[in-house]
Write a protein that binds this DNA or RNA. Structure first.
Lengths: 142, 142
DNA sequence: CCTAATAGTTAGTTTGACGAACTAAATAAT
DNA sequence: ATTATTTAGTTCGTCAAACTAACTATTAGG
């Protein structure tokens, strides 16, 4: 029974996470940015200026893929590249003020969407979710 | 703002869901199926036989997109289409035994990945997570 | 009936992913 | 010190998956 519990838990958690992310995805449309670009921008905002390789690893894509995403972000004035003073092969990519503002607005919309739904739950249920968020983070650790 | 307000909860839930999905995503690679096809197959397994339109709506894609996904699943012998007896325009799509077996194998691999991590939690914490999965599904409802 | 709506497919386009091949720079080896 | 190797990033070609527009076939409404 314990084995079945685990199977069910893994399946249910997986399905629930997918549905939850899908539900809030609509808020991202309004930024005018695609999900991969918005996500890369988010890493720049929260992770600070970094190399292309680091950014690619954070987003679990290859260097060429990230190279193109960054080029598009740069063309849109949302990110900027500068030479790495310590390594002339390298670049340091950072978010611009415009990029930061756009990311923040998108994030607020996404969270607003979730908050509206959170209002449907009781206080006890919200507390339960808050505790679970911590547990999920623990599960996701390597 | 309190530490436990709903903005924090929304932020934590969103981040936790993303990290959790990333952590188990590697298990799906071994199915040999892409994420969209695996996801569509999952809807067929859990939602039963249904029309292309229903499947497209469930996956939040357009009919042409789903038409191609189903065609590929059919070519791989994982799903089957039959005419809808009640509407000659319509088709009913259902998972095959092979498709069901593949989904089950994927689910087992995903669990295997999570198992070590689930072991870090107490039984009480696992119960908490299971309950939270239900709440998350509720949140995701439109 | 005939017209409008619906189910699904086909055609063409865009985006984002990859690997392979390239340039340039840094590091290791002899 | 010179050469070889590795590393960082880009460009190119290709593919999957998403969309819209337009098509066929069928059903439903006036």
């Amino acid at each position: 029974m314990s084995r079945n519990d685990s199977l069910d838990l893994a399946t249910q958690l997986h399905a629930a996470a997918i549905r939850l992310l899908r539900a809030v995805r609509v808020a991202d449309d309004e930024t005018g940015l695609s999900a991969p670009k918005l996500s890369a921008l988010s890493v720049l905002v929260f992770g600070g200026p970094q190399s292309l390789k680091a950014l690619a690893r954070a987003e679990q894509v290859t260097a060429p893929t990230m190279s193109k995403l960054v080029a598009d972000l740069e063309a849109a004035g949302l990110a900027a590249k500068r030479a790495d003073p310590a390594d002339k092969r390298g670049v340091v990519i950072q978010v611009t003020a415009k990029g930061r503002a756009l990311m923040e607005a998108g994030r607020r919309r996404r969270l607003a969407l979730l908050q509206e739904r959170l209002g449907r739950l009781s206080k006890a249920e919200r507390d339960q979710l808050a505790a679970a968020a911590g547990l999920m983070a623990k599960l996701a650790q390597p």
